[in-house]
Computed example of a mutant assay.
Amino acid sequence: MYNPLPLIQRFFAALALLVLLAGCATTPPDSVLAVPAPAQKYAAIVVDARTGKQLFEVSSTAQRYPASLTKMMTLYLLFEALDSGRVSKQTQIPVSDHAASQPPTKLRFRRGESIDVDSAIRAIVVKSANDVAVAVGEYLGGSEDQFAAMMTSRARQLGMTSTIFRNASGLPDDGQMTTARDMAVLGMALHRRFPQQFHYFSESDFMFRGRLVRGHNDMLGRVRGVDGIKTGYIRASGFNIVTSYNADGRNLIVVVMGADSARQRNDHVEALIQRSLSPTMDGTKTRLMFAEQ
């Protein structure tokens, strides 16, 4: 919808709306939530992870590109391999020429090098390393294509009815699609199935070969109670995130897809968390104000 306000006025209007959502104890029954994303890319859902109750959704079953949210399923299958004893945290995963040739973000391996499973998990979570994700897929699946088929099969078993995986990394592929709802299902499954591994998703950096590798998830440390889990971006998807909030007896999974920037995405996640925690929001109707397209 076209908004005739000048750019600076619209910025402060959106900012005021976010402040209102975060702090107002008398939110009107018909509240307004600013959405900093084109309508054709935006999708969001908030789920109470303890009860499965849906607290908010917009276009949550519409097809979207997962980008690096894909790596959540790569990690799910790697955690399964750890649980079954197929691999240990010390197992060395070889990095093939195909894996090493993936575009950034990556750790940049030379021919013949390998990475241990523990470091691989951190590289995928923190750095979102495409070369490591592909190496894991090849190791567990025999080839990346076979691993993608395993990913899609596991997605169906988890109840992710609208997701198709074509690669282990989330790099652009027109056939690789998901929905905000399916990503929420995967986020909850990771939390419930692997509580002993979930701590990886709260890490914002790690040491690799004597170098500090910093991450992309700026929600960590920004909002008290946020304990993961994964960001993603490709041009076709916009800025995506799945966020876990766990504090004061509340556990939420928040998915936002298609934002125009990481900052706008994070602002929106924070607003959705505050909205979902507010007792005044129960049963209210929310109107969405989309950014100008």
Rank of each mutant, 00 (worst) to 15 (best):
S128K: 09
A67L: 09
T243D: 11
G85R: 06
Q196T: 11
M188T: 06
D248Q: 14
R193A: 13
R181C: 02
L20K: 13
P172S: 07
Q102E: 15
G228D: 01
A135M: 09
V226I: 14
L17A: 12
I93C: 08
E113N: 07
L190A: 05
I8F: 13
P279N: 04
T178P: 13
A123M: 04
Q40E: 14
I93N: 11
R193P: 01
A291S: 12
D282R: 15
A44K: 06
D218T: 01
G238S: 07
A14M: 02
D182Y: 08
F11C: 06
D131S: 00
A259Y: 08
I115C: 09
I45M: 10
I241R: 02
K89L: 13
P6E: 13
I8Q: 12
A67N: 11
T284A: 12
A39F: 01
A180Y: 04
F11A: 14
V223A: 09
G141V: 05
A135H: 11
F12R: 10
S143E: 00
E113T: 07
P66W: 14
G225V: 01
D30R: 08
H199G: 15
V242G: 05
R50F: 09
I8L: 15
L288H: 11
S237T: 06
G221C: 12
A135G: 10
Y65E: 05
Q176L: 09
S84R: 14
E57L: 03
R193Q: 15
L272Q: 06
M177S: 00
V256H: 12
L69K: 02
Y233A: 01
Q63L: 13
D30G: 00
T280D: 08
G221Q: 12
A39T: 07
I8C: 05
D260H: 07
L82G: 10
L140F: 00
G238W: 12
T61I: 04
I93D: 06
P103F: 15
M207S: 13
L77A: 03
D282S: 12
A168L: 08
Y76S: 03
V32Y: 05
M188F: 00
V254I: 14
D83Q: 15
Y200G: 04
V132R: 03
M207L: 07
V47E: 10
T243P: 00
R263I: 03
S59D: 14
F109N: 08
L190P: 02
A236F: 03
K230Q: 07
Q196N: 10
D260V: 06
A155E: 01
N266C: 10
E113S: 07
V223Y: 15
F11P: 00
R111L: 11
F206W: 10
E138Q: 09
Y2C: 02
N130Y: 09
S96C: 05
A123Q: 10
A81W: 08
F109Q: 05
A135V: 10
A259F: 04
G215P: 03
G225R: 01
I121E: 02
V223S: 04
G170A: 11
L78Q: 07
S60V: 00
P66S: 12
K71A: 01
A16Y: 14
A247R: 15
L107E: 05
Y42R: 05
G258R: 10
A236E: 15
M160L: 03
I45C: 03
Q197M: 11
V242F: 05
N217W: 03
V35N: 08
V126W: 01
F201R: 01
I45Q: 13
R193C: 04
M183A: 09
T284S: 15
A13L: 09
S96R: 02
R275V: 04
Q197C: 01
A16I: 05
S244H: 14
